[in-house]
Design a protein around this nucleic acid. Structure first.
Lengths: 144, 144
DNA sequence: TATTGTTATACTCTATAACTATA
DNA sequence: TATAGTTATAGAGTATAACAATA
C-alpha cells in the first residue's frame, strides 16, 4: 500500500466524519419548519432542471422512487408542485413547480440559508474558494 | 448587497445541496450493516478523544443527549463500549471503548471506507487536496 | 436549585417488498 | 414481460418534554 493509498484512506475517514456532522448541523438549522431541507432540495432540482417525472427526480436526488413519492405527495399537498399526466406515456406523471413554489424559492432564498451564509461570511475568501471547489467535487462523487 | 454577499449566498445554496446528496450517498454505502455510520462516528470520536461522558460525546457529535443515550445503549449492547460510574461525580458515567471496538476500528478501517476511498482514488491529487482542506473547514463550521 | 442522564413519545427520512396500471 | 408509480411496512436517526438521581 503506497503513500497515496494511505492518504486516501485517511481523507475518506476525515471527510466522512466532517460531512456527517456538517449535514446534521445543516438539517437542524432549518428555521421555516413548514418546508424541510429534503423538500427544498427537490424543489431546487425542479427549479434547476425543469419539470420531470418522479423517477427522474428520485434519480437526481439519489433516493429510491418510493421515497420521492412521499416527498412529492407532501409538496403537492402544500401546493408547491403539480402532478399532471405525461402527454404520451400513460404510466408517467410530470412534476412541475407551481408559481407559489417559484415565488417561495426566490423570496426566501437568502433567509433560508441565513445560518450557513452567515458562517460562510466569517471565512476567508480562500476558504470559501475551497468550499466552492469542494461542493463541485462532492457533487461529482455523489452523482457518479 | 455587495458581490461577496451574493457569492456567499450562492455558495451556501450549492454547498447545502452537495453536502446533503453526498451524506445520503455515504449513509447508503455502508457494507457492514451491523454497525451504522452514526455508531461509527461515535466510536471514532471516542478513539480520537478518549473516554468521556455521554453529554460530552453528544456535544462532540452535535446531537442532543437523548439521541446519544440511544447510540450508547446500542453500542453497549453490541459490546463496543462500557459504561462505568464517574469516580467523583455520581451523576455522570464514563463511556469507554472496549478492546473489541479498538480491534474493529483498526481492522475494518479500510474496508469500511472502501467505497469513498475508491472514489477518492479516482480524483486528481489537487482535488483530494481541496477535499482535505474542505473537511477541515466543514468541521470548523459544524463545530462552532 | 442546577446538572446529568434516562425514559417516553413522536416525527422525518429512507429503504425493501408487493401491488396497480400502462407499454 | 417490462416499466413507472404507488402503497404498505419497517427501521434508523433525531428531537422535545418529562422524570430520576446527584451535586
Amino acid at each position: 500500500m503506497g503513500r497515496t493509498t494511505l492518504d486516501t484512506a485517511a481523507l475518506a475517514h476525515e471527510l466522512r466524519l466532517a460531512v456527517m456532522r456538517f449535514s446534521r448541523r445543516l438539517r437542524n438549522q432549518r428555521v421555516d419548519t413548514s418546508v424541510t431541507l429534503t423538500h427544498l432540495a427537490a424543489l431546487s432540482t425542479l427549479k434547476q432542471h425543469g419539470p420531470m417525472s418522479p423517477g427522474e427526480l428520485a434519480g437526481h436526488e439519489r433516493v429510491q422512487p418510493p421515497s420521492m413519492t412521499r416527498v412529492v405527495v407532501a409538496l403537492e399537498t402544500a401546493g408547491l408542485v403539480t402532478r399532471t399526466p405525461h402527454p404520451t406515456d400513460g404510466r408517467q406523471v410530470v412534476i412541475e413547480l407551481t408559481p407559489a413554489a417559484e415565488e417561495m424559492l426566490t423570496a426566501e432564498a437568502q433567509a433560508r440559508e441565513a445560518w450557513l451564509a452567515g458562517r460562510l461570511h466569517e471565512l476567508t475568501v480562500e476558504e470559501r474558494a475551497v468550499l466552492r471547489e469542494a461542493a463541485e467535487i462532492m457533487g461529482k462523487l455523489a452523482g457518479g
